[in-house]
Amino acid sequence: MNQPQHTGRTERFVRRYDYDDETVVAADVDADEDAVTVDTVDGTAIVVVERDGGEEEFELELPGPAANVDTQNGVLTIRISQ
Rank of each mutant, 00 (worst) to 15 (best):
N2I: 10
Q3G: 03
P4H: 05
Q5L: 06
H6Q: 06
H6L: 10
T7R: 08
T7S: 14
G8D: 05
G8S: 10
G8P: 07
R9G: 14
R9L: 15
T10L: 15
E11Y: 13
E11C: 11
E11M: 13
R12K: 14
R12S: 03
F13A: 13
F13E: 13
V14A: 00
V14I: 12
V14G: 03
R15I: 12
R15C: 05
R15Y: 09
R16G: 02
R16I: 04
Y17D: 07
D18V: 12
D18M: 14
D21T: 08
D21P: 05
E22Q: 13
E22V: 04
E22F: 10
T23Y: 00
V25Q: 02
V25C: 00
V25L: 13
A26Y: 02
D28R: 07
V29T: 08
D30V: 09
A31P: 09
A31H: 11
E33H: 08
E33C: 07
D34H: 10
D34N: 14
A35R: 13
A35I: 02
A35M: 13
A35H: 07
V36E: 12
V36D: 13
V36Y: 08
T37N: 10
T37R: 11
D39A: 15
D39S: 11
T40P: 00
D42V: 10
D42S: 05
G43P: 01
G43Q: 09
T44C: 02
T44V: 15
T44N: 02
T44K: 15
A45N: 11
I46M: 11
I46W: 13
V48D: 10
V48F: 02
V49W: 00
V49P: 05
E50D: 15
E50Y: 02
R51T: 15
R51G: 13
R51W: 04
G53W: 03
G53N: 15
G54Y: 06
G54A: 14
E55V: 12
E55I: 08
E55G: 06
E57Q: 13
F58D: 04
F58A: 03
F58G: 02
E59C: 05
E59F: 05
L62W: 04
P63N: 15
P63D: 13
P63R: 01
G64T: 10
P65A: 15
A66G: 02
A66K: 00
A66F: 07
N68G: 00
N68E: 12
N68R: 15
N68C: 04
V69H: 04
V69E: 09
V69K: 03
D70K: 12
D70M: 10
T71P: 06
Q72R: 11
Q72W: 05
N73C: 09
N73I: 00
L76H: 11
L76T: 04
L76E: 05
L76D: 02
L76M: 11
T77D: 01
T77M: 03
T77F: 00
I78Y: 01
R79P: 03
R79A: 06
R79L: 07
R79F: 01
I80A: 09
S81T: 10
S81M: 07
S81F: 04
S81N: 12
Q82K: 14
Q82S: 14
